[in-house]
């Protein structure tokens, strides 16, 4: 709907009239769906979960990954033998990758 400008001289609105008009604007009525969604938040486990993870903020996933990797490395380090295996010539490794195990005998 288009409002047509009334071509007639009128007085300017006073500050008080403006205030009254603005204050009379009604609040919006939330839909039942929105209200239900908001009220249902109290039933969810969001707060409990956030309480656990909050210290990491949005970085809780990468922080957990780092911590997990560090623990895994620590475990691996303690379980691995201290003496490293005898070094294998690089060409032998490369050849074994390309051609298969080189110590196999030909038929």
């Amino acid at each position: 709907m288009t409002l047509h400008h009334p071509k007639k001289p009128v007085e300017t609105l006073t500050d008080q009239e403006m205030d009254q008009l603005l204050a009379a604007l009604p609040l919006e009525l939330p839909s039942a769906r929105l209200r239900a969604h908001v009220l249902d938040l109290v039933k969810g486990p969001v707060t409990q979960k956030d309480r656990w993870w909050w210290h990491f903020g949005i970085l809780w996933q990468p922080a957990t990954m780092l911590a997990g990797s560090a623990l895994f490395g620590l475990g691996l380090g303690t379980a691995w033998p201290l003496d490293p295996p005898a070094p294998t010539p690089i060409w032998e490794e490369a050849a074994s990758i390309v051609f298969g195990p080189i110590d196999e005998e030909w038929p």
């Binding site: 009128v10 300017t12 609105l13």
Partner: peptide, 16 residues
Amino acid sequence: RRRLRLLLTPWRDELL
């Protein structure tokens, strides 16, 4: 407020 007043003044009688 100045701009809103400019917009509303033509309808002052209807508004009040």
